[in-house]
Design a protein around this nucleic acid. Structure first.
Length: 770
RNA sequence: GCCCCCGUGGUGGAAUUGGCAGACACGUAUGCUUCAGGAGCAUAUGGCCGCAAGGCUGUACAGGUUCAAGUCCUGUCGGGGGCACCA
């Protein structure tokens, strides 16, 4: 028979589906339960080679674990709400729902072509009302606990997508969906109080098996600083604000003696004006212009500092020195107290400012920070404090394609949550779902939907028309996988006990700060509310790399370097594509797709097929190399070292091909099965087996076979290898030394000299110093 | 500016964590095979010297520690990433 991947792959995919081979029972079966999680795709419309990298490779590990006796859940779903879908739909003039659902259908078909062992019976879609009912329910629970609240804030507004963006989604001042420069707007928004969890989000990472880079990214993002809050008394003057003190935050309380002036942010100055400060015209105009500038302006307009003296003086509590108070926009309103003590001797920015405005730069006499804080405490002028870069999570979006926020606004009662029985608040079907420029969600146009009665007082009221950020949807989907059809709870506790927390979560490094942080926050909030029994969702995390185009650049249509997985499957078969993706680079690194390189994987599988078609040998000389493969391939798969796992298989084939017994070959097939599930299943059945190779136990290797009876030891003379000797593995040092000194290459280089020292590292090498 | 990671053949990458650098593969060369090949097989393949045996050299660069360094330490250069007027 000829190897025809197209035929056998389709055949087995159908057969596995028919047998429900990968449907995972919710029982404690086998060694233990194990959910291998990968980020669920967004239904963009076409399976990308990146999807293969993200799903087909972890599938190798899922299959391996199953063969090792674990009850493995490898779930899949679609993160189907969101701006990209909506934008694409608008572009094509179709309804986002139709566009999304069509894409899901198509991608589901494509996903099947990978031969991945997903349990499709647990598919989760965030756009399904049975799913987002619980997204809404969680919002309500968090609202009730004060973890979701409404506040007016300066927000990132994308003028193109016409919606608010979280800080995380407006990195560098551009919308991460469409690349447009964001503007600052003051809007009342729904927020999640993620800052209340800042300390736990940092401290609880300690015991997680996550990449250090990810932990670091989260730590940086949360940005905890420990320091002191210090009160400077404002000196009496006719124009002083109502405030008696200005409070500053510093991480350098030890430099307090060197403070030569205080700088407040324009935002704080504004507040002072609000409480009756009569600033003069120059100050007034500085504040107004600064506040009208966007955050982006303030940050990108070079390092040239601007500012103006307020006319007010403050008293340094440590030495009663009288120092001037300035306003300057290099001090940020939203960080710390919105005011700083300037120590030009120790801070570059303060020095720059002092130089420009000819303020004194005294040499600071340093004192122990703790002592300073103790002193301040005595005077009631300051204490120890921690602050964070992290902001609360703005979750409202003025867009159509998302989960409606389940709140009702009543003129008398304010915002009241929709009662639990009335969930889900279904997203109404709208013909006109285009975003509006007035900052109101398209849902505002669904007038009959908007009308509601207040759950508290029964008076006519209005629904909230904003929808939720998609990151809310994806912050708890892993919980739903454990119990996807539960109509009474988001997931039953028993079910979660079986599968949670997730032992390993594989995904892209781009989620280091957002998705992973949000999911941890959700889990912790649910834990505090008593709905889950663990406060970290993902014990292990691994990032995978990115497959680049053959030119080494990120794949993109405009560059024309996109590798189409369907075309590769058509030409080589899914098994070959899987093998090559596994082989081409370390998984956590990724790299360029080499169109020629894939032929290596193709040749390998062809050779495997050929052995299956021939006669087996009686010889057992391949046994040793196969056993070595069993050991090494298993270990490599566990460590996600797929590239070296493939090379182990290739080595085993190279060494054992000529002398393969039937027994050896079957063992080899089992070890290859997780990577190339179709060809191995076909060959397995050609060997007259009736059940699937994928439910066979992973072979045991014989440790004794792997121990070499003889070892080849390199012998160094003065640090250079001059010869090798072959000795029994258990030879005593004396024998090794004797043999080493007699080796031809060694004698030649010792030229009659006596050895000064002979170092023998058992099983490794011999080193002779002359 | 601060923090983190990485520099190994023509290419992707191995290297049991301090113990024979270049496994495995791509590519290339030569030969065989085939009507043909974007096919298959065999051999070779870091560089330099040599017919060969063998020798020298070699993991960005310069030092250092060690019997032994791709691996550890110091400095330099180059590349990538994160945070960024964050007090």
């Amino acid at each position: 028979m000829k190897y025809d991947p197209k035929k056998i792959e389709k055949h087995w995919q159908k057969e596995w589906a028919k047998q429900k081979l990968y449907e995972t029972p919710d029982t404690a079966k086998g060694k233990s339960n194990y959910m291998l999680l990968t980020e669920f795709p967004y239904p963009s419309g076409n399976l990308h080679i990146g999807h293969w990298y993200a799903f087909a490779l972890p599938d190798i590990r899922a299959r391996y674990l199953r063969m090792k006796g674990y009850n493995v859940l490898y779930p899949i779903g679609f993160d189907a709400f969101g701006l990209p879908a909506e934008n694409a739909a608008i572009e094509r003039e179709v309804n986002p729902r139709d566009w999304t659902e069509d894409n899901i259908k198509y991608m589901t078909k494509q996903l099947a072509s990978m031969g991945a062992s997903f349990d499709w019976s647990r598919e989760v879609r965030t756009i399904d009302p049975d799913y987002y009912r619980w997204t809404q329910w969680m919002f309500v629970k968090m609202f009730e606990k004060g973890l979701a609240y409404r506040a007016k804030t300066k927000v990132n507004w994308c003028p193109r997508d016409k919606t608010v963006l979280a800080n995380e989604q407006a990195g560098g001042g551009v919308c991460d969906r469409c690349g447009t420069q964001v503007e600052q707007r003051e809007i009342e928004q729904w927020m999640f109080k993620i800052t209340a969890y800042a300390d736990r989000l940092i401290d609880d990472m300690e015991n997680l098996d996550w990449p250090e880079t990810t932990k670091l990214a989260q730590r940086n993002w949360i940005g905890r600083s420990e320091g002191a809050r210090i009160k400077f008394k404002l000196q009496t003057s006719s124009r002083k604000p109502q405030a008696e003190y200005v409070e500053v935050f510093t991480t350098r309380a030890d430099t307090l003696y060197g403070a030569t002036f205080v700088v407040i942010s324009p935002e704080l100055a504004q507040q002072w004006i609000d409480v009756g400060w009569k600033a003069d015209d120059e100050v007034w105009s500085y504040i107004t212009t600064s506040l009208n500038r966007t955050e982006l302006d303030r940050q990108t307009e070079g390092k040239e500092k601007t500012g103006v003296f307020t006319g007010i003086y403050a008293i340094n509590p440590i030495n009663d020195e009288k120092i001037p108070v300035w306003v300057a926009d290099y001090v940020l309103g939203h960080y710390g107290t919105g005011a700083i003590m300037a120590v030009p001797a120790h801070d570059e920015r303060d020095k720059e400012f002092a130089k420009k405005f000819k303020l004194p730069i005294s040499k600071a006499a340093l004192r122990d920070a703790n002592e300073v804080i103790i002193d301040l405490k005595k005077k009631d002028a300051g204490n120890h404090e921690k602050i964070y870069h992290l902001h609360d999570w703005i979750l409202s979006r003025q867009r159509y394609w998302g989960v409606p926020i389940p709140m009702i606004r009543c003129d008398d009662c304010g915002y009241v949550p929709v009662s639990e029985d009335d969930l889900p608040v279904k997203l109404p079907k709208l013909d006109d779902y285009l975003p509006a420029d007035d900052g109101r969600s398209p849902l505002a146009k669904a007038t009959s939907w908007v009308k509601a009665t207040c759950p508290k007082c029964d008076k006519p009221a209005e629904r909230e028309t904003d929808t939720m950020d998609t990151f809310v949807d994806s912050s708890w989907y892993y919980l739903r996988y454990t119990d996807p059809n539960n109509g009474k709870e988001f997931a039953g506790k028993e079910r979660m006990r079986l599968w949670m927390p997730v032992p390993i979560y594989v995904g892209g490094a781009e989620h280091n700060t957002m998705h992973l942080l949000y999911s941890r926050f959700f889990t912790k909030a649910l834990y505090d509310l008593g709905y889950v029994e663990f406060d970290e969702p993902f014990i292990g995390r691994r990032n995978h790399g990115i497959v680049l185009g053959p030119d080494g650049q990120k794949m993109s249509k405009s560059r024309g370097n996109v590798v189409d997985p369907d075309a590769e499957v058509e030409r080589y078969g899914a098994d070959t594509v899987r093998m090559f993706l596994a082989f081409m680079a370390p998984y956590e690194q990724g790299g360029p797709w080499d169109p020629k390189g894939i032929s290596g994987a193709s040749r390998f599988l062809q050779r495997v097929w050929n052995i299956g078609q021939g006669d087996f040998k009686k010889s057992s000389s391949a046994t040793k190399v196969i056993h070595r493969a069993v050991k090494n391939v298993g270990e490599d798969i566990m460590g996600l070292r797929f590239n070296t796992a493939v090379s182990e298989l290739m080595k085993a084939l190279n060494d054992g091909e000529e002398n393969m017994s039937r027994e050896n070959f079957e063992m080899f097939l089992k070890v290859l099965a997780p990577m190339a599930p179709h060809i191995t299943e076909e060959l397995w059945h050609q060997l007259s087996h009736k059940d699937s190779i994928h439910i066979q136990p992973w072979p045991e290797y014989d440790e004794a076979l792997l121990v070499e009876k003889e070892v080849t030891l390199p012998v160094q003379v003065n640090g250079k290898v001059r010869d090798t000797i072959v000795v029994p593995a258990d030879a005593p040092d004396s024998e090794i030394q004797e043999r080493a000194l007699k080796a031809e290459g060694v004698m030649r280089h010792m030229s009659e000299k006596k050895p000064k020292k002979v170092i023998i590292i058992p099983g490794k090498m011999v080193s002779i110093v002359v």
